[in-house]
Amino acid sequence: MEAINKQRIKERIKGYLKNPWSLMILIFVILATLITFTALVLLVGYILIKGVPNLTLDLFSLHYTSENVSLFPALINTISMTFVSLIIAVPFGIFSAIYLVEYSKRGSRFVSIIRITAETLSGIPSIVYGLFGYLFFVTALKWRYSMLAGAFTLAIMILPLIMRTTEEALKSVPDSYREGSFGLGAGKLRTVFKVVLPTAIPGILAGVILSIGRIVGETAALIYTAGTIATVPKTIMDSGRTLSVHMYELSREGLFMNQAYATAVILLIIVLLINWVSGMVVKRLTKIK
């Protein structure tokens, strides 16, 4: 039997013909979606076509030489750079958000100044962070081009992002949880760390995930701070390049375009992997048992 609650195509066309604005908007939104989708498919498709055939075992050799153009060291560096930056930025970001939401007086001047600063900072182009890192960590502190200088620069870059997302996550925890906890005789510390923070974890993680995305994709801020050496650094005070920087260098030199595309494929896969894993983590954490 035919469903009676579905508009038939003819009726819908008639409706749209009666109202030209409605028709135009319809065409416009469909077009916009198509263009967006096509752009994405073209981009990913292009990278895959150019990159996948160039994925060779050589690219994953333990050490980089100009023969094998291995991306393996860069892969390791990406992971350690992400790790170190997060270790620096996440605690500071989370704790300052806790201060803003739980401890400071709501709606105070001080808080709104901090908030505006954070918002402004998150809009600054990464090259500016790179130059700052170069002047401060590399030159003034004499850390030279090093993983540490890079990690600190990136940490500063993602700090506002983590702070803002954590703040939103904390704010979305209902006050009734806080009341419930205080009402049982729990102090501020216990209320924040045992009730509020655990509830906000999925939101906080979302911020961390966004940050990982920025770290993995960053080049400008790293070239001037972590440098471009293509090996795994012996210590954190040595220079090393991440995958994105690696790709940038390969294409800049112009000698290894094929390998650059292959690297792009790996980068894409990593980003997808991160998104997938973090999605799973969030789902696991928010699931009602």
Binding site: P174, S176, Y177, E179, G180, S181, G183, L184, V195, P198, T199, K289
Partner: peptide, 13 residues
């Protein structure tokens, strides 16, 4: 002790 108007169990077990 206090019991509130709207039930407010914590999101835990």
């Amino acid at each position: 002790g206090m019991v509130f108007q709207k039930p407010n169990p914590f999101p835990m077990s």
